[in-house]
């Protein structure tokens, strides 16, 4: 899978609950009945996921808009 999300900027995050660094892994995301997997940083223990600001306001917002048929 290509680096469509730049995770390197976020490598200093760790799960505060489990006290372990976040690792890259597949995460299901969905909107309006469409779902797909992306690679995101998450806690290997409790699965807490990190959605970086760039992604939320960039590609995610664009997908939301496309699927909403604006």
């Amino acid at each position: 899978m290509s680096d469509y999300v730049d995770l390197s900027k976020e490598k200093n995050w760790m799960c505060a609950n489990c006290n372990v660094p976040l690792v890259s892994g597949k995460v299901d995301i969905s909107y309006l009945g469409n779902s797909f997997q992306v690679n995101l940083l998450k806690c290997p223990i409790c699965n807490l996921v990190l959605v970086p600001e760039d992604l939320a306001l960039g590609k995610m917002a664009e997908v939301e808009k496309s699927l909403e048929d604006k």
């Binding site: 995301i29 969905s30 909107y31 699965n47 807490l48």
Partner: peptide, 8 residues
């Protein structure tokens, strides 16, 4: 967008 199965 909703974070699905892989997430808490």
């Amino acid at each position: 967008m909703e974070i699905g199965r892989g997430a808490v």
